[in-house]
């Protein structure tokens, strides 16, 4: 009676669910976070206000509430037919984007202002200055905190189990309910799965960090 080998298919499905949820939410969070960071340093006041509002709102809302808002609120607003997986991606991606934005912004603040001035003085536009000069240099400082945010995101995906998404958290709940297995062993295997994911993320970010350090 081994909980892992008896339920390997379920574990695999849960593991892949968590990986997918993490990867897609991470992609959304990175894109949105970078965009919002660009808004927050933009010369256009309306964009700056939007960026500040986005960060303030999402950073200060508990993730569970955000899940509730997305899964209950969006259908109430007429956005029906979204599957719970994509709603979870949206909640996790938007939530994490607020933190990514701030990590990127703190990176931007470490880039000497003369770098952007030099770029503007040769006629580069705001977007070119940000994309070619400021963000690549900001990345060096922003990458380590972004790595931590990605790990937090991987663990936050467990909240999705409460909203009908198949991932590791839901596997754990199902198995706990099915009697006969030692609850501690279930927890152990679930923990091992999370550790595989989070260690992979740290490894990736360490690699990225080293690469950026070499390329000055």
């Amino acid at each position: 009676m081994n909980v892992l080998s008896d339920n390997f298919a379920m574990f695999r499905e849960g593991f892949l669910g968590t990986v997918e949820l993490t990867a897609l939410s991470a992609a959304l969070a990175l894109v949105l976070g970078t965009l919002i960071a660009a808004f927050r340093v933009s010369p256009v006041p309306a964009l700056r206000i939007f960026g500040t509002a986005w960060v303030t709102l999402l950073r200060n809302t508990p993730l569970v509430l955000l899940f509730l808002a997305v899964t209950l609120g969006l259908p109430a607003l007429g956005l029906k037919g979204w599957d719970s997986f994509w709603l979870a991606v949206m909640a996790l991606g938007c939530y994490t984007s607020a933190f990514i934005c701030e990590a990127i912004r703190s990176g931007i603040n470490t880039v000497p202002v003369g770098q952007a001035e030099a770029a503007r003085s040769i006629g580069m536009t705001f977007n070119q200055t940000l994309g070619q000069i400021v963000l690549p240099q900001a990345a060096r400082t922003a990458i380590p905190p972004i790595g931590s945010l990605m790990i937090a995101l991987a663990k936050n995906t467990a909240i999705a189990s409460g909203f009908n998404v198949t991932e590791l958290g839901s596997v754990q709940k199902t198995l706990n309910a099915a009697s006969g297995y030692d609850i501690y062993v279930i927890f152990l295997w679930i923990a091992v799965c999370y550790i595989i994911i989070t260690f992979t993320i740290s490894g990736l970010f360490r690699l990225l960090e080293n690469r950026l350090a070499v390329a000055r």
Binding site: Q115, A118, A215
Partner: peptide
């Protein structure tokens, strides 16, 4: 510029 401001990366 006084401080050169070459693109460091």
């Amino acid at each position: 510029f006084q401080s050169f401001n070459l693109f460091a990366h």
